[in-house]
Design a protein around this nucleic acid. Structure first.
Lengths: 217, 217
DNA sequence: AGCCTATTTCAACGCTGGTTGAAAGACAAG
DNA sequence: CTTGTCTTTCAACCAGCGTTGAAATAGGCT
């Protein structure tokens, strides 16, 4: 059992996660990471192949857990509706609530991770490929569920709606402080209860409006 | 008329904009920028104080124009409604349509700019401060207009809704290719007509749902 | 013509980046 | 105690970074 080495490996990942989240991949040096982790620089290259490999490991580590709990939440919602389909808002809540739970459990860690994901999602260099690699299977399951909840809805409307959702979600969970500045303190980015109350409702309304058979021929 | 030097200055800004948009501030070197601009490295430091100053100049250059045309669009919408208030969707369209117009005029340039803004908006390091510095006056005007269109609505609901809008908008205009991958080609990030048809409607529905006096006491 | 200023080039400085090879330490098995 | 493997440290390499000072060029005044 290499439990001691595993622990340092985790410390390295934690340090890298925090720094990458705060300043972005390129702005952070391996030396900074290892200083924060309290270990020698060269040790990074014992546990990981390269800086880039370390970055991938940071992304991977929590992606698996996150996908698992979200899948569970979706299954739970679908299980509650054995005959009818869940509402759009319920499905979206199954997508966002697990995040809120994880943030409640360990805000520090998951907050860093979410801030990092927001940057990746919005990067032309990485957004296309990395988000697809780490999250696509789960997202496709959610889109499947949404399609059932909106049976008369075009495929394109659902994909576009999901894309709007993705942008709103990643920015919101990134907690950049923008909202705090803009609202002069009326709203706080870190107020998870406010997010839980508002985000699923807001987004569900968007889905339903786009999928309503109104103006389009 | 320093028209010749102005032209090189613009070429430097164009090159910097494209590279910063594609790879982020820290990943891009001044040498790369000047190579793309077809000029000597040192010339960057004749026209700008530092790499960071160049970055600010890139952001500033189009921000002013963008704010101006958006303000014009909002004034135009409000002018059309001298007695009643414009609808939420009209106001949001006044926020997004100018972007679509600019992209139609010169896609290359404005696409780079939007991709850059998406990264800034989602960065904890810059999102709070820079977005506030460059866009706040305009955003506050829009929020004012929205407040009039939703007179019974809480301030907090409007700020949160705007925040969701901001995330959806910046990711969408960043055109990262994520949507293309996810939808297996059914939707294309670069399809501006699809955005124009769907985004204002989607977001307006969200605003209206959050501001509807239903469940909240 | 010569001059003056605005612009552009050249060559370099000091420093830090990611990365590595070899040596040292820890520690379990024999 | 010795051996061997896993983990950690030390010291260094070299390419490339942001930045600068001084020299070259260009182009409008007088």
């Amino acid at each position: 059992m290499a439990t001691k080495a595993q622990a340092t490996r985790e410390r390295i990942l934690d340090a890298a996660e925090a720094l990458f989240a705060a300043e972005g991949y390129a702005a952070v040096t391996v030396r900074q990471i290892m200083k924060r982790a309290g270990a020698d620089v060269a040790l990074a290259y014992y546990h990981f192949d390269s800086k880039r490999d370390l970055f991938d490991a940071v992304l991977m580590r929590r992606a698996e857990h996150l996908n698992a709990v979200r899948l569970e939440a979706l299954d739970e919602v679908e299980g509650r509706h054995s005959d009818d389909a869940p509402t759009v808002e319920e499905i979206i809540a199954a997508f966002t609530n697990p995040l809120l739970d994880l943030l409640a459990e360990d805000h520090e860690a998951w907050h860093h991770y979410m801030a990092l994901i927001a940057q990746v999602n919005n990067s032309p260099e990485w957004g296309g490929e990395l988000m697809t690699r780490y999250f696509d299977p789960l997202v496709r399951r959610f889109i499947e569920a949404l399609r059932k909840a909106l049976p008369h809805c075009d495929e394109a409307e659902i994909f576009w709606s999901y894309h709007f959702l993705s942008g709103a979600l990643t920015l919101t969970f990134a907690e950049t402080g923008r909202l705090d500045n803009l609202s002069d303190g009326v709203c706080r980015s870190s107020d998870m209860a406010s997010i839980a109350e508002r985000m699923p409702a807001f987004l569900a309304a968007g889905f339903e409006r786009l999928c309503a058979p109104t103006t389009k021929e």
